[in-house]
Design a protein around this nucleic acid. Structure first.
Lengths: 345, 345
DNA sequence: CTGAAAGCGCTTACAG
DNA sequence: CTGAAAGCGCTTACAG
């Protein structure tokens, strides 16, 4: 077995062994007939035998440069995704992504080299490798709208995980609006007349959807919801704001905030009792020993669907991509839990 | 801003805008002087300005084909790594890998496309993209020795996570031998004279090291350890074997086995009492409410070190690689826990 | 049916 | 100091 200077076997050497041209090797490998050409079975067999002898594998960089898909999907996360702290958010997403990638026989390129600027990564930088991927999945709480717009302008295939407001951005998100509405109506049914909504004051689309969901649903009900931005407040201040609000229910933007608020309130007023509801995935979250009430967002399904959509975009001819349904909202489910209870009179 | 047909900006267009040759653009980008050539500051500035205008980024496939490193490290796991079940083993490793990759400014390519054969992935397959990476990290309980040998033969840079017996395989592993010896001596000090070692009968190097560690340490002590291969045994059978062995301590190959055995024994003989020790990372594992005794394997450090070693190999000239220290064993720590107690007489 | 050739976008020696 | 040219390993039209 001959090798070139880099120690790798190339099509040229396969061709020499099999006594054919390098182009023929390529055609056999791709199992394709160009311009009505058919390779005779005997030739094909000789080539395949040579390939087996030499343990040849095609160079993906060359394939890519020659214009072929590489079956590599990029995964861009705006924060580190594999740390213990981020597993709560990213774990189910990554799980869904891996399963979808296996199903599609795609490899995954994680852009961990992207420099951190203010704790958030940047997709476009000097040596970005994102173009090596056939397309890219974007994940994160704090996406950069300008980068999304640039990807749209360049026509690079990508899908954002989470609803976005920028025009023409493909995404797979969650229908926070209707889910939030359902839980607000549930609070009303259980007799709650006053509630607070604790949030972080962020402007992400999902955050806006939750606020809209509250406003839209509450407008037709007895229930009144007061919003409190907890950013910058310490636990004592949070507890005081909740207690001063004279409410029976505490709605929070995420599950950690529900746990933190409940702990703070318990310390400040052990006898007080509130219902707690998070407008977020509550799996694994508890108030004391009671499973927290809120949503099951089925993040595995969201991620899996996002990867499928990305693959669809990649495989669709650029001129036909406008016909694709590129903006998808999935429905999560309500989780009853044990912290959403009838109001005590 | 002109673009070629693929919608991408290339060096050729940058060159046209800046009024220089394409080769000059490449030289400016790589900030290198070939054959004593220096680019005048004015030219350099013109090129850089053109690059900023056009949002140019180099095509990594072309760079790779031209022989440059891409700062892409491959991650090959023999099992799915991002599923909820595998997080116990892979979670800390992935965390260490991501941190190291950020530190080295490398992207990570996960080979999720590798077809599953008997639940284990195969690195070499028809369209494997592993060569796209500058080097590759191999993880998993069941590595394929033949694949490792082939990587060695081809001179492809790689590092296995976990000690390997195949010659010349670079690895970063854990010193199970000495750790096991320490815990065996600890059992002896606590007055245990008879113990069982429950294991899965696998032949991985780490499994062999644990067995050797037991044998070597016990040979000079009063303590006698009987090995039991639990593969194929149900929980009732495991409990019976443990109870029949007339021992005071149960040593297990991993933490899940300790939990399973303890539960089985408790059901079969609620009054019996044993010490439990796992020759594995015990973080998050309990017997009842007692934290399990065993090891802290510091897997983040292992993974981080493995990635650093891989980077060292990649950056070292192939002819000098023999001089590298390519086989590393790290020391874990004993975790006292609460399930390893003095023997009751 | 087969092979010589152009081209993908880079890097890097080598003439001018 | 700059540019024309070869080459990396592929794919794919296009002559033979």
């Amino acid at each position: 077995m001959t090798t070139n200077k880099s120690g790798r076997v190339t099509q040229r050497e396969i061709a020499k062994i099999a006594g054919v041209s390098q182009a023929t090797v390529s055609m056999v490998l791709n199992d394709r007939d160009y311009s009505n050409v058919r390779i005779p079975e005997a030739t094909r067999a000789r080539v395949l035998r040579a390939i087996e002898q030499t343990t040849y594998v095609a160079d993906p960089a060359a394939r890519r440069l020659a214009g072929l898909d590489n079956k590599i999907l990029g995964i861009f996360t705006y924060e580190p995704a594999l740390s213990a702290e981020s597993m709560d958010f990213y774990g189910p997403l990554l799980n869904g992504i891996e399963r979808a990638a296996e199903r599609l026989s795609c490899d995954l390129l994680f852009f961990t080299a992207s420099p951190l600027v203010d704790g958030s990564r940047s997709l476009f930088h000097k040596n970005t490798r994102f173009r090596l991927a056939d397309g890219c999945l974007l994940l994160g709480q704090q996406m950069n709208g300008a980068e999304l717009a640039r990807l749209v302008a360049e026509g690079f295939p990508f899908v954002a995980v989470g609803r976005r407001d920028e025009p023409d951005v493909p995404y797979v998100g969650l229908d926070y609006l209707s889910l939030t509405g359902r839980i607000i109506r549930r609070l009303d049914e259980l007799g709650h007349e006053r509630a607070v909504y604790l949030h972080h004051g962020t402007i992400a689309p999902a955050a806006a959807d939750r606020r809209s969901g509250i406003a839209q649903a509450a407008s037709g009900l007895r229930l009144a919801v007061t919003s409190i931005d907890v950013s910058g407040l310490d636990r004592t201040a949070i507890a005081r704001r909740v207690l001063d609000a004279d409410v029976t229910a505490v709605i929070t933007e995420d599950s950690f905030l529900a746990e933190a608020a409940a702990a703070a309130v318990r310390d400040a007023a052990p006898a007080a009792h509130f219902s707690y509801v998070a407008l977020a995935d509550v799996a694994g979250h508890f108030i004391g020993t009671a499973p927290l009430s809120g949503f099951d967002l089925r993040r595995e399904a969201v991620a899996s669907r996002a990867l499928s959509l990305l693959q669809d975009i990649i495989l669709t001819d650029p001129s036909d991509r406008d016909d694709l349904q590129k903006q998808v909202l999935l429905i999560g489910e309500l989780v009853d839990g044990a912290t959403l209870v009838e109001v005590r009179r």
